[in-house]
Design a binder for these strands. Structure first.
Lengths: 136, 136
DNA sequence: GAAATAACTTGCAAATAGCAAGCTATCAAT
DNA sequence: ATTGATAGCTTGCTATTTGCAAGTTATTTC
């Protein structure tokens, strides 16, 4: 679906559906890199999850690797492009916390209000560290 | 669709589809408040647009008013809840600009990198002013 | 009063999502 | 080495959602 020249529209063509950002939340924030780990988080059907992972790989947002410790497993690791989405996820936590009934991670929302940049830097370094460990 | 207690999931239940955030972009950033103005921006079908506006009204994210200057027109004005989404839209502009082919509003993306808070404050005050003028 | 315009509404075809049950490769245990 | 379990992925079918085109109604303009 080709829409406008607006970067928001272009971004939403890649990540603007009901599941993609939740998958990226699992990868970027929960460090759930394996298919079954992601599938367990929310009730996403396996064919839909597969489709979303394939699209994200095709777009260069995540990379598919065989887990060297267990070759049945595939691990889906975020690229820099995905890591740059952390600010969006953080903003959504704050908005969801303030404007919906869900109060799952209120501490994060509070920390963001105090020092947003620090929270984002922290989340970024944690996921980078975790990804590096998986690749090693 | 009831998903988890995660505020990201709750937020995406409200705004996580292919069109809703584009509609909010038109309202919050382009100050397009009328049905036909929004419908013209991207090729959204009128029944889909109607459905999204109805949902946003039901969720308290926007309000429906009859335009006092032309009573055929309905104007959909953002509430505070919608205005709090401006950071999300700004982050999407930055990400889309850096990670997709769309380079529509590169100036905004650059300004955000220099002083994000200032850009957000500016966009907020502009939409508040514009909404107040419409209500008056 | 007639034509135009804005906001919806409806009917139907095409695309997408979701469920359940497969299949294949690898691993762990006997 | 065979057996059973597990991980990733695929397939078939149904239900929901989307998208297009052509209405309908209220209001405005000429």
């Amino acid at each position: 679906m080709k829409r406008s020249e607006c970067p928001i529209a272009a971004a939403l063509d890649l990540i603007g559906d009901r599941w993609t950002l939740l998958v990226l939340r699992d990868i970027l924030l929960a460090h759930s890199y394996a298919f079954s780990e992601i599938a367990d988080q929310e009730g996403i059907a396996t064919n839909i999850l597969m489709d979303r992972l394939d699209r994200l790989v095709a777009a260069g947002i995540i990379e598919r690797h065989v887990d060297s410790a267990d070759r049945r497993r595939r691990i889906y690791l975020p690229t820099d492009c995905a890591i740059e989405l952390i600010p969006v996820l953080v903003d959504l936590v704050v908005w969801g916390n303030a404007n919906t009934a869900a109060k799952g991670v209120g501490e994060v929302a509070e920390a963001v209000l105090l020092d947003r940049d620090a929270v984002i830097r922290d989340l970024e370094s944690k996921v980078r560290e975790s990804v590096a460990a998986k690749k090693a």
